[in-house]
Design a binder for these strands. Structure first.
Lengths: 198, 198
DNA sequence: GTCTATACTATGATAGAC
DNA sequence: GTCTATCATAGTATAGAC
């Protein structure tokens, strides 16, 4: 085999992460070897350690980057005026963001148990920050008398679980366009917060 | 170390499955070794192969047994008369059954990707059978004019995702008793199928 | 039915040549 | 920046003693 020399660091670095995310989503962190990742990237296993100190750090950074991107994208959206618009905006945002990144979503929700305790705690903090944004909307809606919610914490988790479940079956070019799916979920979210549908 | 001889097959067999389920739920199938399972059972690794031909079969049988138990428990329940009672019964059943078996639920939803294609197909069939039971209720409710559902398939998956999400946070002796949690989820399910809450 | 011992393969990670 | 080569460790599974 010919040896590839030369500088490809700015290409290889992102590619390592992309390949690792895809393989881990497909087979699980523990089931994927550094050699498999290297093979798909097109380098030898040893070369990977130019881009990550170890396998655990690679996993953590994939998950942290996903949560950072989620929070950043959310922060970049302007806040709507009334609670119902804010709720609908959250629903739409969550569906769009998650449906566009099935691998990252899968990894971020499934590989928590493979993080070291330290890394787990950090990621939980980010996840919690996101959940709190929805719970704040629910609380405001209840205070305004617009939503009828028995328990904002449980309703928050239930809505997020319902919305995120989409990623287990949604595929581009499926039976229904994403616009229509969004409408269906918005109706169900309205129902879950105690509003009549319309 | 003294060697343990004697017949413990009827004890060891179930214990292997119990220990394996717990360890796989905690760390993931690929991350758990046959040696770890054997250590927790209290035997040497070689002894496990009296109870399973290999690791893959062990995983598959854990998952299949869970789905079999789910379908059997559901079939053992008498069918309610009207659609709303049937929906509430499904909700209550799902919450009870899943909250009592967090390990089996976790494994059955997270380790699908570690099954061989053959075993995956078998398990998908069982899962589909269960989903179809909820979808049948939704269809009947729509036909009766009791439910307002845009798409029974998506609503089915959304409701199951919402309910199953409970297992990620519910712990015995938590903030709320299971009865109260059931009431909250029943309300949300009513909302998701387009009924006013009450 | 469980043990010990082992065959064989794979793993994560490092050192040093180019 | 990537390669080859290698270390130390761990993996699944099997064979045969007890």
């Amino acid at each position: 085999m010919a040896r590839k020399t030369g500088s490809h660091g700015d290409i290889t670095g992102p590619k390592v992460r992309e390949v690792a995310l895809h393989l881990i989503a497909r087979h699980g962190f523990a089931a994927v070897s550094m050699r498999q990742i290297a093979a798909d990237v097109g380098v030898q296993a040893g070369a990977l350690y130019r881009y990550t100190p170890d396998k655990q750090t690679l996993l953590f950074e994939l998950m942290r980057d996903h949560m950072d991107a989620l929070l950043a994208a959310r922060a970049a959206r302007g806040e709507a005026r009334n609670v119902l618009d804010r709720l609908d905006d959250f629903t739409r945002f969550h569906i769009r963001f998650h449906s566009e990144r099935p691998d990252a979503v899968f990894v971020s929700y499934m590989e928590l148990r493979n993080l070291t305790p330290d890394n787990f705690t950090k990621l939980e903090g980010l996840r919690r920050t996101y959940e709190d944004q929805l719970e704040a909307i629910l609380k405001d809606g209840v205070a305004a008398g617009v939503f009828a919610v028995r328990d904002t914490k449980i309703t928050t988790l239930a809505i997020i679980a319902m919305l995120t479940g989409l990623t287990t079956w949604y595929r581009d070019g499926g039976r229904l366009p994403l616009d229509e799916i969004e409408r269906i979920y918005i109706d169900m979210v309205h129902g879950a917060v105690g509003m009549a549908q319309g």
